[in-house]
């Protein structure tokens, strides 16, 4: 018994240290929006795919693809995702025949043919999702100088992998999709009151302290106001609104529904192996826990008669 208590205490100490190390080095939370308080609350969506056992909802991924295809794809590329991925396990799981049809809607340059000429052919499952612009410069030129980022990894390259999410069973990855969701629903037609109030207050305080204080104001310029974009000024105009798409499965296409669907689709696009990863992970951890139990018994058996 003495041994056991000792082992447990030393293990507890060990894990405490590991956790302390990990927590102190956790990457800082991605600043959602600016530092100004009083805006709408950042919503943490209850994703079906979050947590240790979470899986994607196929219908939602298919709807998400529809939103991506009909709205996002007119400006954003997705060069790491291939049409064939859309029929692979753990994704939207369109049928192979459906994917052929989806791919054939777009063309791609191929060649050279026997005469040395490049030619256009329809896309096949092996090809990537289409890019709306020939290159980055063309994309910038068509978007007022701002480059619409490639969306293949957007769900992993935005947002944070927070310690809290890790223990809330949120997979530690939900920061990105939560950010995308909030961004999509976070547009305002006009600069909201909490921003103007903040600047008014700042100017008032500044003038009190120093009569030569130069007033500052929030200038939106050509940008669009978004509650959750760092700095609030977003080049992308509000891309989604109620009924921006018409879902073929009859789901009502509210703004929130579309934002959730497309965020989920982007999560899948960034991490297409998530489902298999988790399902294998559960088995691996169970195996290791049993092995650890056996090893503990072996170790105890061997040290049984040794005081140490």
């Amino acid at each position: 018994m003495h041994n056991l208590t000792k082992n447990i205490t030393s293990l507890a100490k060990k894990s405490a240290l590991v956790l302390a190390l990990a927590s102190s080095f956790a990457t800082p939370a991605f600043a959602a929006g600016g530092a100004i308080s009083g805006g709408p609350e950042f919503k943490h969506v209850d994703w079906s795919w979050a947590g240790v056992f979470g899986t994607f909802d196929r219908a939602q991924l298919q709807r998400g693809y529809q939103v991506y295809k009909e709205v996002c794809a007119s400006c954003h590329a997705m060069e790491l995702v291939k049409f064939r991925n859309l029929s692979e396990a753990g994704g939207p799981e369109f049928s192979k025949a459906q994917v052929k049809v989806l791919a054939a809607e777009y063309e791609i340059e191929d060649g050279p043919d026997a005469e040395g000429e490049m030619f256009m052919r329809s896309r096949k499952p092996k090809d990537a999702l289409p890019s709306p612009f020939a290159n980055d410069n063309a994309a910038k030129a068509s978007n007022g100088g701002a480059l619409p980022p490639d969306l293949s990894l957007i769900a992993k390259s935005r947002g944070h992998f927070s310690f809290k999410d890790m223990f809330m069973g949120r997979d530690g990855l939900s920061g990105g999709p939560n950010y995308i969701y909030n961004l999509l629903v976070g547009y305002e037609d006009e600069v909201p009151e909490y921003i103007t109030k903040y600047y008014d207050h700042k100017n008032e305080e500044g003038l009190k302290a120093d009569p030569d204080y130069t007033e500052s104001h929030f200038e939106l310029g050509d940008s669009n106001f978004n509650n959750f974009f760092p700095g609030y000024k977003l080049a992308m105009a509000m891309p989604l609104d109620d009924d921006s798409v018409e879902y073929s499965d009859g789901t009502k296409a509210t703004l929130a529904q579309q934002a959730e669907d497309v965020s989920t689709f982007l999560m899948w696009a960034a991490e297409p192996k998530m489902e298999i990863r988790k399902s294998i992970g559960i088995r691996v951890l169970l195996f290791l826990i049993i092995l650890a139990g056996l090893m503990y018994a072996v170790k105890r058996r061997i040290w049984e008669n040794v005081r140490h």
């Binding site: 092995l291 056996l294 090893m295 018994a297 072996v298 058996r301 061997i302 040794v306």
Partner: peptide, 17 residues
């Protein structure tokens, strides 16, 4: 201690696992 190489069930099970 018993001879450590003794192949009792626990050792075999752990080794196999």
């Amino acid at each position: 201690v018993e001879e450590p190489g003794r192949r009792d069930f626990l050792y075999i099970a752990t080794g196999a696992f």
